[in-house]
C-alpha cells in the first residue's frame, strides 16, 4: 500500500514548469530519499504533497486519499508530520510551549489532548527534554532542526515528510538526524526525506528518487543508481591476463586511460565500468575463474557524484564536463 503517491503531478509558476508530470510512489515503511540539486522542484513537490501549493494538473494522494479534494474537510494531512524547509517557530515562546500550541492548534479536542500528551515523549526522542523551557530564540540551528522533527512527530504520523532536514547541521548533528530517521523507519514510520546531498541519502535511505528540472530521472535502491554509471577498480596480480578476461565479458567497459602497469605477470589496477545488471562480484568470479588473483575490489566513491551529476545536470545550462564514458 502506498503512503504517498503522485500521478502526473505538474506545477507551473507563470510559464516556468517547476514540476513536470511527476509519478512517485512511496510504500509503507520506506525511508525514501528524494534527491536533486537545488531548484529541481523538490520543495514544490513537497509543498503540493502537504496541500500548501496547488498542482496545476495531476494529483497527489496520502494513504490513498487525495490531498486536494474540494468539499472534503477530513483530508489525509492529519496522518502526516512535516518539516518544510527551515523549522520555523514562535521565537518568543519556549520550545515546549511551541509544541503545546501546535499540538492544540488543529483538529477535534480529543486529538489535541492526545497530541498534548505526546509533547514530553517527542522532546525526549530528539534529546531536547532539558532545553524545552528555553526560548526558541536561543536555540542553535541543530536544536531548532530537532525541535522541528519533534513537532512533526506530534500526533504519531504515518508519514514523515522532511525537506532538507540536515541542512546547515554540523557532521555530528547530521549523524544524529540520520540515526533518528533510521530508528523511526525501523519503527514502521514511512519517511520521505529530500536532500541535495547524495552521500547523505546513500547513507540512510532504502529507496531513492532523483529529481532534475521537475522530472524524475531515476528511481531505485541507492546501490542501483550507483551501478548504472559506477566504476570499479580491480587490483590484480596479472594485468595483461586480467585485461583479456575483462574485455571478453559482456557489459563490462574497460577504460583505456585507467589501466596501470598492465603487463604480463605484473600486478595492476584496472578500472572498469559496469553496466546495469552486472555486479562486481560476477566480474570478480570471472577473473578468479580464469586464474587471475584479485587482491581488492574497490568501488569508486567519487563516481557516485558523477552518477548524480550526469543524471541531473543540464548540458545546455552548465559548462560541459567530459565524463570518462
Amino acid at each position: 500500500m502506498s503512503v504517498l503517491a503522485t500521478h502526473n503531478l505538474t506545477k507551473h509558476f507563470g510559464d516556468q514548469v517547476v514540476v513536470d508530470s511527476l509519478n512517485l510512489t512511496v510504500d509503507r515503511g520506506d525511508l525514501y530519499g528524494f534527491l536533486g540539486p537545488n531548484g529541481a522542484g523538490k520543495s514544490t513537490t513537497i509543498r503540493m504533497a502537504l496541500g500548501l501549493v496547488f498542482p496545476t494538473t495531476g494529483t497527489v494522494e496520502v494513504c490513498d486519499v487525495p490531498v486536494f479534494s474540494p468539499g472534503r474537510s477530513d483530508g489525509p494531512l492529519k496522518l502526516v508530520g512535516a518539516v518544510v524547509e527551515d523549522p520555523a517557530f514562535w521565537d518568543y515562546l519556549s520550545g515546549r510551549r511551541n509544541l503545546e500550541l501546535f499540538a492544540r492548534a488543529a483538529g477535534p479536542l480529543d486529538d489535541s489532548a492526545r497530541r498534548l500528551a505526546q509533547v514530553d515523549e517527542v522532546l525526549k526522542m530528539v534529546d531536547l527534554e532539558g532545553a524545552g523551557r528555553k526560548h526558541v530564540k536561543a536555540y542553535s540551528h541543530g536544536m531548532r532542526q530537532r525541535l522541528g522533527i519533534a513537532r512533526a512527530l506530534l500526533g504519531a504520523p504515518e508519514l514523515l515528510v522532511l525537506d532538507e532536514p540536515t541542512n546547515g547541521l554540523d557532521p555530528q548533528g547530521m549523524r544524529e538526524v540520520r540515526h533518528l530517521l533510521r530508528r523511526l523507519a525501523d519503527d514502521g514510520v514511512t519517511v520521505f526525506v529530500s536532500s541535495h546531498l547524495l552521500t547523505e541519502v546513500e547513507a540512510m535511505c532504502d529507496k531513492v528518487g532523483v529529481l532534475s528540472s521537475g522530472r524524475l530521472v531515476a528511481e531505485g535502491a541507492p546501490g542501483s543508481l550507483r551501478k548504472a554509471s559506477g566504476s570499479v577498480v580491480y587490483e590484480v596480480d596479472d594485468g595483461e591476463a586480467a585485461l583479456g578476461v575483462l574485455r571478453s565479458l559482456e557489459g563490462v567497459g574497460v577504460e583505456d586511460d585507467a589501466t596501470l602497469g598492465a603487463s604480463t605477470g605484473a600486478p595492476a589496477r584496472i578500472r572498469v565500468r559496469l553496466e546495469e545488471g552486472v555486479t562486481s562480484a560476477q566480474v570478480n568470479g570471472a577473473l578468479v575463474g580464469q586464474g587471475v588473483q584479485v587482491g581488492a575490489v574497490i568501488p569508486e566513491r567519487e563516481r557516485l557524484e558523477d552518477a548524480f551529476l550526469s543524471l541531473t545536470e543540464e548540458p545546455d545550462e552548465h559548462e560541459w564536463v567530459p565524463h570518462a564514458e
Partner: peptide
Amino acid sequence: SAGTLRYLLVRPVG
C-alpha cells in the same frame, strides 16, 4: 514571514 503559517496549515488547520 516567521514561517509558522505553513506549519499551522500542515497540522492541518483548515
